[in-house]
Structure formats: C-alpha cells, structure tokens
Amino acid sequence: MATVTECGNPSNTFSIEPLEMWEFTPIVSLDAEPIDYDDVKETSLVYKKDEKVTLSDKISKSIRDKYTLMVFTTESKKLSLKFTVKNGTTDQFYDDDGYIKPEIALAKGEKELTEKESIKITDDKSFLVDYTKKKSTLIEFDVEINTETEKTFFINFYANDNKKYFDIEGKYKNVFCGQVKVIKKKSSICKDKDWSFFPSLVSDSKKVTYGSSLSWTNTPECYHYALQQLKDLGYWVKTERWNKKWDGTKELNDDIFQLYLSSDVAGMKKGIQKEMFENSLIYLKQAMESKTPVMVGLHYREGYANEDLTTDHFAVITGCGRDIDGKLYFEVTDNFYSSGKYYCICENYEIIKGNYIISQVRKSRKL
C-alpha cells in the first residue's frame, strides 16, 4: 500500500491501494434457469438480496457490493448449469483470460455425506475462459446430486491466471469470484424413472367378484374377496390384523401403511400421512419389481367402521405403469366396483381415482 505525504506538512498523510496490473479477476454468475434432466419441474430460482456473499477483495468493491446470491431449490438428481464469466475489476489494465474452477461445498451445519451419497460436478475440471473479444463468456457443466435427505450446498468459483505466450501470469491465486446456493429437496420415490411397469396380473375372467362363494368363510365381505384374489395369485397378507394390540388400545400393525385417515386414531392425526405415503411407495416399488400383488384399503365415504375409522372397501394392486403424460399409476383389481387406474399424486401425497383414495397398503407374503 502506497503512502502520500503533503509537502511541508509531514503529519498529513494518506494511503492508497496499489494498482495491480494484468491480473485475472473475473466474476461468475448464473446465466439462466437450471435445466432439469429428471423433468420433475420442481426447480425454482430466486435471487437473495438479503444474503451476503463475501467475494474476494481482489474484485473491485463497486462490483462485488452489487453481487447477489443466487439460490435455487430442486428435487432433481441431475442438473445442467450455465454461467456467465465477465471482468470483475474497474482497473484499466486487466487480464481477460484464465481458469475458472467450480467446487462443491456443503453449507455450514450440514451433516457430512454418507458413503452412499454424493454431490459432484460431472466434468470436474478447471475451465479455460477468454473474454478478450467479447465482454463475457460462458461455462457449462452438469451437477449430479445423490442424497438420501435434504441437503444445502454451494457451488463456489475460483479464478487463476494462465500463462500463454507473452502473457505474464498474474500473482493472484484462487480468487473467490462467484457462488450459487443449491437446496436439494428430498424427492418422492414416485418420480423415480426406474419403476417396473406391467399390465394387470388379473384378466376379467380371473377376477374374484363380490357375491361369489368362498370355501373358507361363510360371511364373505370385500376384505375376504380381496384376500381370495391374492390367494389366487399365490400370495396372502403378512398380517390380517390392523391393530397390533390385544388390550383394547390401538396401534397400527408394522406390516400396514396408513396413507389417509378421516379421523384421529391410534395416535395418528386426521388427514394425509406423508411419511407413511413415502414408505409405502418404497415397498410398492419393490413389490412391482417382483410382480407381487398388494392388498389396499379404499376410502370414498364418511362414517364406515373399520378399525382405522376410514377404510370403506378393499381391493388389490395387480399392475403398474405410466400414462402418456408420465404420471405413475397402479392397476387396482376391485371385487365390487369397476377396476381401474389409481394415480399417484406426488405433490399431494395420495393415490387416487376420482373420489376414491387408497387409505391403506398391506404388505404381502408368498404362499
């Protein structure tokens, strides 16, 4: 830092920053909305003016003070990102080419990634950029995000000068010149692309219908006909009891997923059961991979008296697919009403067909 002293008044001094010439001091910012490879359309971008980014002091103060943190949330496992690189100094003499290195850093307070988790830039390298002829240039890369829980992380950018011909390599190293904040939301398994799809295991001629005789019960109801449908396919439910308790109190059996309740029951609150929904989909995905039929409870009216105070009817999932719009559905074979497709509405945590909603999913066992 240079010091200037007034002539004839040595007590009057002031200091000025030295002029650094031919240094590579760019600034990096997000160029456009991230492209979502998973096409889940759950990526949202915001500019956080209230969240400060402290870029390198090698970048001119007037430029870095205007820098706005870029934040986006996503459920996607893979994103394509594009960034603008331009001069970050007001100095008259600056270097206009060099290397930009993007790096991943977890946000403060985030737990370290497990062995099964990873966040990585697919083309992990330093990008050689040159804005000699234009005022800016672009860099592009993909980010793959494989996390089991929600994670917040940053993509930080660092600049280093290159040495070329008569171009003198600058003294500045690892200049922090840009940042993007990414919030990876936990995505629903129903949006996974690797579901196993197959048509219904039961044709109309093989469908068990309400009112037909069953040899193993004298008073069959829809529940028994759904069990018979499972039996015809070589399966049974893991448990026939919704309540795991025998002392008059209620507790949901471990082999049943309760997706929806029309009343408070067994310590669960009325309404959609988000965690149960997600867990049921993990089980259903495994069941569909092995073409295992699964009994489900259906709710379509108020006031029925099954133990969950919700379920009105029972049927069996016998197939799985996606429609032309990519929506996941389950083929439900119904012993009384018409069979059909029940759609998985991920954002609402429900599986429905019209006014019918799947209220229970019961695990199957092979006979």
Rank of each mutant, 00 (worst) to 15 (best):
A159S: 08
D97V: 13
K101N: 09
Y99M: 13
I145M: 15
K125A: 07
A159E: 09
L69Q: 13
E103Y: 08
K108L: 01
K125P: 00
C177M: 09
E75P: 00
S80G: 03
F72K: 02
D124S: 07
K163Q: 14
I139D: 10
F83L: 10
L113G: 03
G109A: 06
K151P: 00
K101R: 14
L128M: 14
K61N: 02
K61M: 03
V143M: 07
D123V: 04
K66V: 01
E75F: 10
I119D: 04
A159G: 06
F141T: 02
V180Y: 13
P102W: 15
K108H: 03
E75D: 11
L55F: 05
N160E: 09
D142T: 00
N156G: 04
T147P: 00
T122R: 11
E51N: 12
D91K: 12
T147W: 09
D96H: 06
L81T: 05
F153T: 00
D65V: 02
G98S: 10
I63R: 11
K173A: 08
N160I: 02
I121Q: 05
T149R: 12
E51Y: 13
I104D: 07
L69G: 03
I145S: 06
L69Y: 12
L128S: 12
V53G: 01
K77F: 04
K151S: 02
L55D: 03
L138W: 10
I121W: 07
S80H: 11
K134W: 05
A107N: 06
Y94I: 04
M70R: 09
Y172E: 13
D91S: 13
K82N: 15
F166P: 00
S118D: 10
G98C: 08
T122N: 07
D124R: 10
I121M: 10
L138T: 03
